[in-house]
Design a binder for these strands. Structure first.
Length: 976
RNA sequence: GCUCGAGUGGUGGAAUUGGUAGACACGUUGGACUUAAAAUCCAAUGACCAUUGCGGUCGUGCGGGUUCAAGUCCCGCCUCGAGUACCA
């Protein structure tokens, strides 16, 4: 019988499930440890071997922590809303819920077979009303919150309303898009509808006309992180820009905190770097340029302070310049009392280099900039409008691929350089993006390569204003590109000439602030998160409309359940599927929102819900949150770096501001497992025939390479009978063999159905068992590295488990474990392994952990060791990696109950102590021979012993000794 | 373009703090057991030269450097992968 993995694994999986072995409850006597996997979207294809890689690693860690006395929370659930099930529904009419349920069952079955220590009583599904009730609840809270920059946190909207009633919107520092100043009087006398419109500029969840990524093929908008190179991440469909009325989350209010929080978490540097880039903080200045009014005198008129201008003397304010979204849903002017029509038009630019103001020779607006039509002179109108419409109709992808093509139009208008009074021609060009900064720039062609290229192309002047330390300015006409200006000395720059760049930046900011035309500021690349999707299969918004304005449902009416629909397609008017329903209304008859929430809605707070998943009255109880706090170890793929990991951090900080979550960061430590790539196999057909040539003979023939199903290939040898049966067209295939075998070629590619290289875990488990699969997935290589899947090595791991089994049982299945005392040597093997396993789990080096077990078993075999004193701790030690076999051995050794919470063996240094050390002796750094010496020797004694050894004499022959280096218990190096 | 990561045998990979390069495993070769096969066990296996036994030389993408000693540190390149992309 031997190692009967099938019986053992089924037995223990049943035991764990019946005894709820891994159920985690709050237990104040034990320290908590929260290990989380990124929950999967249950796709129709089931799990392939790439999915469990991270789950196995986190499971090993969870089990290890249980042995160390921690109360481990290790839950699993499903990110059940998503496009594929809905696309399938459109094609087949099957309700996404049915598809999803089916896929979840399949996932569960596959997960169960691998022997994970999940607490399934805590399962959550994002599509479950009992779960999404809290997603909707959080949305209501976001809607009813605004961001107070003075306290630097979200506060209830009622406090804002009180402020408006007393002070209007002055004396306020809020994250907002409200461009108007109004008084208390205005507020108190305006209509409810207008009040609601104003509040929309402050809410953390708000409705606005926004430029969105519209994907016509999917019939929905996409978030920035769901668009890759101008195509949708899912499906690869073209994406275009479109202005639409959308819900957004004011995540930009949290930009600085999201950036600062990265310093406190233990994540890999590349992921943190990606988030930093995504948040995109840059320090600089906001500067106003007046538009020349045609007066021949160039003296700039006095500036008029409008709106939210800088307060006091602060060097840097946090005003959000990102005003590409206009929260005026119905195109109405707010008509505030203090809204003077501007006498002089001005263009506000954001620059990181205010010191180069003297080098600005022209200005550029994005084609979408709101002032374009106003400033364009009549003679330029035709050209400018043509350019604007051309730019508008280009797809994102075109715009990206044609980056190198320089295009633009002169508007006929001029801006006035506030420091020099000089006239700067204003151009429009699509190299200036509407979505960043203010959508307008001052161009400094001398020191910016894009401005330089543009200036050269349209023959605009170039001025040098920065020169490298110790160098002389040169003639810009001779340059090939702009001059780097990060460091150096200012020239041609009036009052800042001669200053170092850094000093010049500060001096300029002070100056423009004094002049009242600008201020130091910080700009973020991060955009507010667009939160509406024109789809069916997602969370409904708890929103209804009254008098055209959105209102939230009462919390007591949650969950607002997703209704049944006739069709999953958009309506004929292009509205979302829910718009087709006639009864999608509140009981008072107000129409409900017809968009649904995006994929990241449900995944943003699921780690909190796991803490208290069955709570009917709260998202999670304070007690559960105080105990479990946050995730200690989070394992998942790095594809979520810019999406999920930012959104959920935002979600968590918001709940922290509300006083619900007790930690600011949700995920303390993050490990990103690498992707498992496919290893495709190929056969070589002679074109036009049904003859196939073995891999190493193919150079003698003219062949065509074809993918072959990897299930038909073992160790690169093709199962020719299987191949013939695989497809009808190969039924009469003939093979040209080498040494009696057909050898296939191979290549590492993405795992995909079309390449016939998808490996599901099921077949492997059937053949080798889950413990072998677990060990093998870990043995493949470092967890965080991408690596090809290759079943060739799995036999070795399987052999190892059989060898392990034979330490405990003979060929007749008789237990051969004895109670004899272990020898020094055997104890040394054991303790060496204990030490190594501890260290390797702690540093997530699971591949070397598996080798350590192999070495241990090989050595115990060699020693013919069958002693309980050794084998009992060994069974315990291997439990995190191979839990089924460990449980079985533990039981057969006479123990009751599960091994899972038994204390882990402790490493004792005394067993590793050696009387002597075998020194490698090098000559000039090259290892020549080894020398066994007692450990107690002094360095001088070691030197003497080394030089006097017979071997050394041979190597020193004739050459004088120059130097000798001895590192005790490491190396001896003799220099001759 | 920018940012980050990685290049080690036929293959996956190891070398944790600068200290014996190639652990462990796959594959391959030879052998034992067997009527035979499977399973299992034993041995060899970086390359090259020498093979009668020794032995020797080279070797961690390339070129330099620091050091008694470099896969590991420094400088300059090359290649591959990922992210990002006119971010002012």
């Amino acid at each position: 019988m031997g190692y009967d993995f099938d019986r053992i694994e089924k037995k223990w999986q049943k035991y764990w499930s019946e005894h709820k072995t891994f159920k985690a409850d709050i237990n104040h006597d034990k320290p908590k440890f929260y290990v989380l996997d990124m929950f999967p979207y249950p796709s129709g294809a089931g799990l392939h071997v790439g999915h469990p890689l991270g789950y196995i690693a986190s499971d090993i860690y969870s089990r290890f922590k249980r042995h160390q006395g921690f109360n481990v929370l290790h839950p699993m659930g499903y990110d059940a809303y998503g496009l594929p099930a809905e696309q399938y529904a459109i094609q087949t009419g099957t309700h996404p819920e049915i598809t999803t349920e089916k896929n979840i069952l399949r996932y569960r079955e596959q997960l169960d077979k691998i022997g994970f220590s999940f607490d399934w009583d805590r399962e959550v599904r994002t599509s479950d009303p009992e779960y999404y009730k809290w997603t909707q609840w959080t949305f209501i809270r976001l809607f009813n919150s605004w961001y107070n920059k003075k306290t630097d946190k979200a506060e209830n909207i009622s406090a804002l309303i009180s402020h408006f009633e007393i002070n209007g919107n002055t004396g306020l520092e809020a994250a907002n898009t409200c461009e108007e100043i109004f008084t208390a009087e205005f507020w108190n006398n305006t209509s409810e509808k207008e009040q609601q419109q104003i509040l929309m500029h402050y809410r953390l969840a708000y409705l606005s006309e926004t430029m969105v990524n519209w994907c016509p093929e999917l019939g929905t908008v996409l978030a920035n992180d769901e668009v890759k190179e101008g195509l949708s991440e899912r499906g690869g469909h073209p994406v275009e820009k479109k202005l639409m009325l959308q819900w957004s989350l004011r995540i930009t209010a949290y930009a600085q905190r999201l950036l600062d929080g990265l310093e406190t978490v233990d994540w890999s540097e590349p992921i943190k770097e990606m988030q930093r880039n995504w948040i995109g903080r840059s320090e600089g200045a906001s500067v106003d340029f007046e538009v020349w009014d045609g007066d021949s005198s160039l003296t700039p008129p006095l500036p008029i302070a409008i709106g939210d201008s800088p307060k006091g003397k602060e060097q840097i304010t946090d005003k959000n310049l990102n005003e590409s979204t206009k929260v005026l849903p119905f195109g109405e002017d707010l008509g505030g009392v203090n809204n003077p029509k501007q006498q002089t038009l001005k263009i506000t630019v954001f620059t990181t280099r205010p010191d180069t103001l003297f080098g600005a020779t022209f200005m550029v607006l994005a084609p979408e900039h709101e002032l374009v039509t106003q400033i364009t002179t009549p003679d330029r109108k035709v050209n400018v409008l043509a350019y604007v419409s051309w730019a508008k109709n280009r797809s994102e992808r075109e715009r990206m691929t044609e980056v190198k093509n320089i295009s633009g139009e002169f508007t006929g208008a001029y801006g006035i350089n506030p420091l020099t009074g000089g006239k700067l021609p204003i151009w429009i060009a699509d190299y200036v993006l509407a979505g960043y900064g203010t959508g307008a720039i001052m161009a400094v062609p001398g020191h910016d390569s894009r401005d330089f290229a543009f200036a050269r192309h349209f023959n605009l002047p170039i001025i040098q204003v920065v020169v490298a330390e110790g160098e002389e300015p040169t003639d810009p006409a001779t340059w090939d590109d702009s001059i780097d200006s990060k460091e150096g000395v200012m020239v041609n720059s009036g009052f800042i000439s001669g200053m170092q760049v850094k000093n010049a930046i500060n001096t300029t900011i002070n100056k423009i602030q004094e002049m009242g035309i600008g201020y130091g500021t910080i700009n973020f690349r991060l955009h507010d998160a667009i939160f509406s999707r024109q789809r069916y299969w997602g969370e409904p918004f708890p929103i209804y409309y009254k008098d055209g304005m959105p209102y939230t449902l009462d919390e007591s009416e949650l969950p607002l359940k997703l209704p049944q629909v006739e069709s999953y397609l958009p309506t004929e008017q292009g509205d979302p599927p829910l718009a087709a329903l006639t009864d999608w209304k509140t009981k008072e008859g107000y129409p409900l929102e017809t968009n649904t929430m995006p994929g990241f809605a449900g995944s943003s707070g699921y780690y909190l819900r796991y803490m208290d998943p069955q709570n009917k009255d709260e998202y999670f109880s304070a007690e559960a949150n105080q105990y479990w706090r946050n995730v200690d170890l989070y394992v998942g793929g790095d594809e979520h770096a810019a999406g999920h990991l930012i959104y959920s951090r935002f979600w968590n900080i918001f709940l922290y501001d509300l006083g619900l979550a007790c930690e600011t960061e949700p995920f303390k430590k993050l490990i990103n497992q690498g992707k498992i790539q496919g290893r495709s196999s190929f056969v070589y057909r002679i074109p036009g025939t049904n003859k196939f040539v073995s891999h190493n003979l193919r150079k003698d023939y003219d062949t065509q390479r074809l993918h072959v199903d990897i299930d038909l290939v073992e160790n690169d040898v093709l199962n020719t009978e299987g191949f013939k049966a695989w497809r009808d067209e190969y039924r009469n295939a003939e093979f040209i063999l080498e040494e009696g075998k057909y050898i296939c070629g191979w290549e590492v590619e993405k795992m995909s159905k079309s390449k016939h290289n998808v490996q599901n875990p099921d077949a492997l488990i059937e053949k080798y068992g889950a413990d072998t699969l677990r060990l093998y997935e870990m043995f493949l290589g470092p967890l965080e590295q991408d690596k090809p899947w290759d079943t060739n090595g799995i036999e070795g791991v399987f052999r190892f488990l059989k060898r392990l089994w034979r330490l405990y049982f003979d060929n007749n299945d008789q237990l051969i474990v004895t109670n004899e005392n272990a020898t020094k040597e055997e104890l040394k093997v054991l303790h060496k392994t204990i030490k190594k396993i501890h260290e390797d789990i702690e540093r997530f080096s699971f591949n070397t952990g598996v080798s350590a077990f192999m070495i241990c078993v090989n050595e115990l075999m060699e020693l013919n060791c069958h002693k309980r004193e050794i084998l009992e701790p060994l069974a315990l030690l291997i439990e995190p990696y191979a839990p089924h076999v460990a449980e079985e051995l533990w039981q057969l050794l006479g123990h009751q109950g599960s091994i899972s919470t038994v204390d882990f063996p402790q490493y004792d240094e005394k067993y590793l102590a050696e009387a002597s050390f075998q020194y490698p002796v090098s000559f000039n750094g090259k290892m020549r021979f080894k020398l066994d010496l007692p450990v107690g020797l002094t360095i001088a004694e070691i030197e003497k012993a080394a030089i006097e050894s017979d071997e050394a004499k041979k190597w020193m022959e004739g050459k004088p000794l120059r130097k000798i280096i001895v590192v005790p218990k490491r190396i001896i190096n003799i220099v001759v």
